[in-house]
Simulated assay, not measured.
Amino acid sequence: MRFSTRKLLPGLTVALMASAIAVSTTVGARADADDAKRIFKEMSDYLALQDHLAFDFDTVLEVVSSEGQKLAFASSGAMEISRPDKIRATRTGGFSDVELLFDGTTLTLFGKSVNVYGQIEIPGSIDHLIDELRDTYQRPIPGADLLLSNVYDELMPSVTDVKDLGSGVIGGVECNHFAFRTEDVDWQIWIAVGDAPYPCRYVITSKQIDTAPQYTVQVSDWKTGGAAADFVFKNDTDAEKLALDKLPDLGELPAQYSPEGAK
């Protein structure tokens, strides 16, 4: 049987409107801001206690084109962290294949698909690295908020509204689902239920653009403990070394939808 999108859309619109009405009338009654903050604090404390952790992730980055069309670009990757000062991450998408390594002193960005890399000295912790990449080099790590050593103290002060949305299931894992609002962004988080309250999904929604594009990162294959990997870059492919500001764009967008071409 063939289905017509044109026939399905009116029914879908009605269903979405009904869902919106249901949420608006029931969430307020079940929201418990104190409980949501408590569980989020438990997640923050749990993450801070993990000396070594590793996980896989999938991301979806939404942009709005100059024609006002919302577009989404997907990537996948893996990350390994050894606190307080080592990180290794890979990300593969349709437009780049990137590896990031930090050994506590040297940060390396390696563009595998173009076989070039750049290095800078940023001695310090992972927290310091995240701040420097965002503020000094304008190369923020998407979703890096959750890698900080004290997620709660970094994110909660700017929150103006909290909603407890009950339970959800992400990748077969039961999660507590919360929504938080700040002046600039809305964000949602799904936190695994149980003794390992890790973040299963994190969604950041812009409030500065009318069509509200989002960035979503979903976590899988969560692991803690074990032996740490080697976080030192080895140039096994004879990649060309470039100054960091000369590296090609290693982000998640094709060139035509870079910030210069997006709305």
Results as ranks from 00 to 15, higher is better:
Met1Glu: 06
Arg2Leu: 04
Ala20Tyr: 00
Ala22His: 07
Val27Tyr: 01
Arg30Thr: 14
Arg30Phe: 05
Ala31Phe: 00
Ala31Pro: 12
Ala31Thr: 14
Asp35Met: 04
Asp35Asn: 04
Ala36Asp: 04
Phe40Gly: 10
Lys41Gly: 07
Met43His: 15
Met43Leu: 10
Leu49Ile: 08
Asp51Pro: 05
Ala54Gln: 08
Asp58Met: 10
Val60Asn: 14
Leu61Lys: 06
Val63Gly: 06
Val64Phe: 11
Ser66Arg: 11
Gly68Thr: 10
Gln69Asn: 08
Gln69Asp: 03
Gln69His: 12
Ala74Tyr: 06
Ser75Tyr: 15
Gly77Val: 12
Gly77Cys: 03
Glu80Leu: 01
Pro84Ile: 01
Lys86Ser: 10
Arg88Ser: 15
Thr90Ser: 14
Gly94Glu: 10
Phe95Gly: 15
Glu99Gln: 08
Thr105Asp: 04
Thr105Cys: 00
Gly118Val: 13
Pro123Ala: 06
Ile130Met: 07
Leu133Thr: 12
Leu133Lys: 11
Tyr137Ile: 15
Tyr137Asn: 06
Tyr137Val: 14
Ile141Asn: 11
Leu148His: 12
Met156Leu: 10
Pro157Tyr: 02
Ser158Tyr: 15
Val159Trp: 05
Val162Asp: 03
Asp164Met: 07
Leu165Phe: 03
Gly168Pro: 02
Ile170Ala: 03
Val173Pro: 06
Cys175Ser: 13
Phe178Cys: 10
Thr182Arg: 07
Asp184Tyr: 00
Val185His: 05
Asp186Gln: 09
Gln188Cys: 02
Gln188Gly: 11
Val193Pro: 01
Ala196Pro: 13
Pro197Gly: 12
Thr205Gln: 09
Gln208Ala: 11
Ile209Arg: 02
Thr211Tyr: 09
Ala212Leu: 07
Gln214Ile: 01
Val217Arg: 00
Asp221Ala: 11
Trp222Cys: 01
Trp222Ala: 02
Trp222Gln: 00
Gly226Tyr: 01
Ala229His: 11
Ala229Trp: 13
Val232Trp: 10
Val232Glu: 10
Phe233Trp: 09
Lys234Thr: 00
Lys234Leu: 04
Asn235Lys: 06
Asp236Tyr: 00
Thr237Asn: 08
Asp238Leu: 02
Asp238Tyr: 09
Ala239Met: 08
Leu242Arg: 12
Leu242Tyr: 02
Ala243Tyr: 09
Leu244Ser: 06
Pro248Ser: 06
Leu253Ala: 08
Pro254Arg: 02
Ala255Leu: 09
Gln256Cys: 08
Gln256Tyr: 05
Tyr257Thr: 12
Tyr257Cys: 13
Pro259Thr: 10
